[in-house]
Write a protein that binds this DNA or RNA. Structure first.
Lengths: 215, 215
DNA sequence: GTCTATATGTTGATAGAC
DNA sequence: GTCTATCAACATATAGAC
């Protein structure tokens, strides 16, 4: 089988490129116009294809949506992932994470897609199941590692196990999304930051300065 | 219009009673057999009615499901609510909350229904929207009040605002449900309790003793 | 109050032409 | 690779008989 970057049988390379292009476009549409019941047909129209044309690139609706979220993570990682997960300190991880959370506040449709698929992927047979399991594990590994290092350095309370804390941070982020979707006034980033503040024993009202967002 | 408990035109009282009976039965079915795509037709069969027969008591599927969750809360409150929210101390609230979380671990179908509807109710037009908004507000009020009292009494870190902390506790519970549905090995109660432990500055490994569950 | 039957609407998926 | 056309599968909601 031809590998990425290879030229033989250009149709394959072209197919992959087009796939990525579709995913990026779909993500932009959802980010800009929200997730309004997003059927395959609607998404297809939004990216300039017919329903059948779009499904030519994906086995099913579920796979399509899963890949959109994968692409989302890929793009987010361009920010969050500029740090080296094995050596980054808590402030870097915290800042990167807050950046992502703030960005999410600007793309409700993407957050809704994520939340919907999260629940549907509960079924082990669901095409997105593995994606969510692995995504969570990766996220918690990054958090867990930095928490461990911070605890060792005395910067973070040792009252709670590192892996448990990592799990809690993930839960807070996901749970806050639900609250925020229900009531958009909820300040996701502020709340997450307050948690970090409390955990690092930082004086109240301090917080991390807001960065500029970049879309 | 006849009020509850009145006898004239018994059909009304009977209708209400039957409604409650249906909701209780439906909840039991979901608790016992899980939420497997639960269509109105399936639920109807499970409670011994035809689809149309069941919808005779509810305006729509969405209303039916909302009422099932309302009934769930009503029953949970029989445990969680034995305490007086305006005077209960943190240990009581903590114990009651943990009890509910542990109970949830035994009824995955109910948790799935809750999570699904949570996301769908994001739309302000959805029949369950108000339910979830009010439910969250009530929950956070209870938590916020007890946190405030505990902070005043010096039992809880003052590093974080009481209302923010209440929101975080709610978010953790909801977020953990997602993790647990995806991977049933996740220990929801243990994780929630670890959070309480850290917040109250309790020595690690302490925790609240597990109670017997009662179904 | 409950059932049978059906109207109605969607959607995802596929076959086949171009 | 892309479109048109069509399918099959459901599910909810409603009408009307009993």
């Amino acid at each position: 089988m031809p590998k990425t970057g290879q030229r033989r049988r250009g149709s394959y390379a072209k197919g992959v490129a087009k796939r990525e292009e579709i995913l990026t476009a779909a993500l932009e549409v959802i980010a800009r116009e929200g997730y309004r019941g997003a059927s395959v047909k609607e998404l297809a129209a939004a990216v300039g294809l017919s329903q059948a044309g779009l499904l030519h690139y994906f086995d099913s609706k579920e796979e399509l949506f899963t890949e959109i979220l994968r692409k989302r993570d890929e793009l987010d990682l361009a920010h969050f992932g500029t740090l080296d997960a094995t050596s980054a300190d808590i402030d870097e991880v915290r800042a990167g994470y807050l950046h992502v959370v703030r960005h999410n506040s600007e793309v409700p449709g993407v957050v809704e897609l994520f939340s919907r698929l999260s629940v549907e992927a509960v079924d082990p047979q669901h095409p997105a199941h593995r994606f969510f399991v692995e995504r969570g594990a990766t996220l918690r590994t990054i958090f867990g590692d930095v928490v461990r290092r911070s605890q060792a350095a005395g910067r973070l309370t040792g009252a709670i196990d590192a892996d448990t804390l990592a799990r809690i941070v993930q839960a807070v982020a996901d749970g806050l999304q639900l609250q925020w979707m229900l009531e958009p006034d909820v300040d996701m980033a502020g709340t997450v930051d307050a948690l970090f503040r409390a955990l690092t024993g930082e004086p109240a009202g301090e917080g991390l300065r807001e960065e500029e967002d970049d879309d």
